[in-house]
Nucleic acid binder design. Structure first.
Length: 648
RNA sequence: GCUGCUGUAGCUCAGAGGUAGAGCACUCCCUUGGUAAGGGAGAGGUCGAGAGUUCAAUUCUCUCCAGCAGCACCA
């Protein structure tokens, strides 16, 4: 047998016989390492300890201390152990796939009745039994036909299909956890006892389509989460609780921001408090955009089918549009219109009105455009995913040469806005041509190159998302991370050579000839509805002072103070602060609690003492401490705090 | 849109084949209280909509609508 050379992370090398396993290697290094070893990275690929090494390679032995591989193995083995537990309890259930995902895994089963939450307890108990049994994990590489036949015989049709989908050059790996067997590419731990029995939890049951395809059968899915130890699990459960407490739907009700109701599914009834946030944000964006060279327009909501036919939406987007038929008496045929799902076609109409010169470019046209999209019912979610919303939309008409500068300009604009709104960092994804697209490959080459060189010129880091572009052009998507680590795609910057073509947009160049402009679609917040949802969840309802709907409540302690309370409110209001009086016949404790629950950032308490001194006692939301201040000072201070960031 | 679950007072929820209950919120009264719920009384519901079974339906069945979770979707 020939020798192979292994290179360790520290650069040391070792000659071993071909077919040596990572476990052998670990043992040859030290007993303690062999004990701790769980898997190996071999030329960057995650290996079982039991896989034979066939050629020269760089190797690193993983232990439970290595975050990513340890968690991957734990979660992956949990998926198998769970599947085994399910088949132990219900032998008729067919297994499919069970990948690692997020903080755990899921496994899809083919079964008539869905699992119930009560079933989960039984499955968890069986899983613990399997872990306690410390069943060894064994692998065999099988011939494709043999594996296929085996699964046909044991009646696992989904596994047969999986085998057929495994590329021909890949080995078919069969795993055993004790006497339970599954098809899997691995890698796995050495025995089930390595799983932390106190650091997992089955979290939910649901259904999912086979292979994610809505035309294929629906399977019953069980989700689990797993960590290396109990504390990590607890920390994650706490995170879930935290996310739940931040839910914008709940805070929206508690803070009296908005409501939604059956008669208008997916549309928001904004209450005074919520609308205050909305307008404060919109006023801010309007000022920012003006300062950045945008002109604002406004275009119709109900637009004839004929324009949507020209723009291509009627073909490609019709199922998502609200169609409005108007049946006029004496009309030869019904007039068919659609609520606009996007603003772009209308913006081209404004652009087309009157001859444009190259001197007009780049022309930045913004609209707080109210759009309506018939989103599938299952997609609706609070104010985050709705059917009626307003975008902070703009289209930049420009020449190809201008794309780079406009891209850089927009990214700076976006960074400034996000920072003002409390998001210090964001990620950029460059999405390339999708399978379903319009335009020639040459044109895509061209535009993708232009956009990529634009993003490069900003020297910001970005990742590439292959095939994720819009059907008409490549795009940059901007993701922000919120206070508890979730990411949200908000901003977008899309290069579109097609719509100007379809809708006949032109400009007169220096040469006196007509040319086709490019159109850049861009948004910073995305939609006001969704972004406000994100702001609420990011801040857990404690919005920055300038956005808080009620910034100050002035609360009387005794009714003798009422008159002065109103005086204080008037002074604050005059300074531009959103202040309210609370002179109800309630104790100060009660008022403090109520306004704290309502997330009012500042409470001013007024008793006999304050009336006498012409002072106020300031209490900040969430703080126990209070501070006595002269009226003038508190007005100046809160007035300054309420100034939007772009005006400071 | 698909699968499952849910729909009872403004909110959170209990309940049962014989036309409904709690806490909070609301109104009124007492209380003027110094930083996260003072006390009492009162008012409030076509039990999501429609159809069916039944002597009787809010309760059982079916259809629809909406919400929730996941999937699919998200130019």
């Amino acid at each position: 047998m020939s020798q192979i050379t292994l290179t360790f992370p520290d650069g040391a090398t070792r000659e071993v016989p071909q077919g040596t396993t990572a476990r052998d290697v670990a043992e040859s290094i030290s007993k303690s390492l062999a004990k701790k070893a769980i898997s190996a990275q071999v030329d960057g690929i995650h290996y079982d300890l039991a896989w034979p090494l066939e050629q020269d390679a760089k190797i690193a032995i993983n232990t439970m201390a290595d975050d990513a591989p340890a968690l991957e193995l734990i979660r992956h083995d949990f998926a198998h152990v769970m599947a085994r537990a399910v088949q132990t309890i219900w032998p008729d259930v067919k297994v499919t796939i069970g990948p690692v995902r997020d903080h755990g895994w899921f496994y899809d089963f083919d079964r008539e009745a869905p699992f119930t939450p009560e079933d989960l307890g039984a499955i968890e108990a069986e899983m613990k039994r399997i872990i306690a049994a410390r069943d060894p994990v064994r692998t065999e590489v099988w011939d494709r036909e043999r594996a296929r036949k085996h699964y046909e015989e044991v009646g696992e049709p989904f596994k047969v299909e999986l085998i057929d989908r495994i590329p021909g050059n890949e080995p078919i790996r069969m795993y055993w956890h004790g006497d339970w067997q599954d098809l899997c590419r691995g890698p796995h731990l050495s025995h089930t006892g390595q799983l932390p029995a106190d650091a997992f939890k089955l979290t939910r049951v649901s259904s999912a389509y086979w292979l994610g395809d809505s035309t294929r059968p629906q399977l019953q899915r069980i989700y689990g989460i797993a960590f290396r130890n109990r504390d990590d699990l607890k920390a994650h459960l706490k995170f879930l609780e935290e996310a739940e407490a931040r839910d914008h739907r709940r805070l929206g009700r508690e803070m009296d921001l908005f409501h939604m109701q059956e008669e208008a599914p997916g549309q928001v009834f904004w209450h005074p408090n919520g609308w205050t946030i909305y307008t404060a944000l919109q006023d801010y964006m309007r000022r920012k955009q003006r300062a950045d060279g945008y002109m604002e327009v406004n275009t119709p909501q109900v637009v004839s089918r004929s324009l949507w036919e020209k723009s291509g939406h009627w073909d490609k987007y019709q199922e998502h549009m609200f169609i409005v038929e108007v049946d006029e008496e004496h009309a030869r045929e019904k007039a068919i219109n659609a609520l606009k799902p996007m603003n772009c076609p209308c913006h081209v109409q404004v652009y087309n009105h009157g001859m444009k010169s190259y001197r007009d470019l780049p022309l930045r046209m913004a609209e707080f455009g109210s759009c309506s999209r018939y989103e599938p019912s299952g997609a609706l979610h609070g104010i985050m995913r709705v059917r009626g919303f307003t975008q902070d939309d703009a289209h930049i008409f420009c020449t190809e040469d201008q794309i780079e500068a406009e891209c850089a300009k927009f990214i700076n604009f976006l960074a400034s806005v996000y920072e003002d709104l409390g998001f210090d960092t964001f990620e950029i994804a460059f999405a390339t041509r999708p399978e379903k697209r319009v335009g020639s490959d040459e044109s895509w080459d061209h535009v993708e190159n232009a956009l990529e060189s634009a993003i490069r010129s900003t020297s910001r880091t970005y990742r590439i998302e292959e095939g994720d572009g819009a059907f008409y052009g490549p795009k940059l998507d901007f993701y922000l991370t919120d206070a508890i680590g979730r990411t949200w795609q908000c901003g977008t910057f899309q290069v579109d050579p097609n719509l100007p073509e379809r809708l006949g947009a032109t400009y007169i160049g220096e040469d006196g000839e007509k040319h086709r402009p490019y159109m850049l679609h861009r948004a910073c917040l995305g939609s006001f509805e969704r972004f406000i949802g994100i702001l609420i969840e990011n801040s857990a309802g404690r919005l920055p002072f300038w956005l808080a709907p009620r910034q100050v409540v002035v609360a009387s302690i005794v009714s003798e103070a009422d008159e002065y309370v109103h005086e204080v409110v008037a002074a604050l209001t005059k300074a531009g602060v959103r202040a309210e009086a609370d002179t109800r016949n309630e104790k100060i404790n009660y008022k403090v609690r109520e306004h704290s629950v309502g997330k009012v950032p500042a409470i001013l308490a007024i008793g006999r003492q304050e009336v006498e001194d012409r002072s106020v006692t300031l209490r900040r939301l969430g703080e126990k401490a209070t501070e006595v201040l002269p009226l003038d000072e508190v007005v100046a201070r809160l007035g300054a705090e309420g100034t939007p960031p772009d005006r400071r």
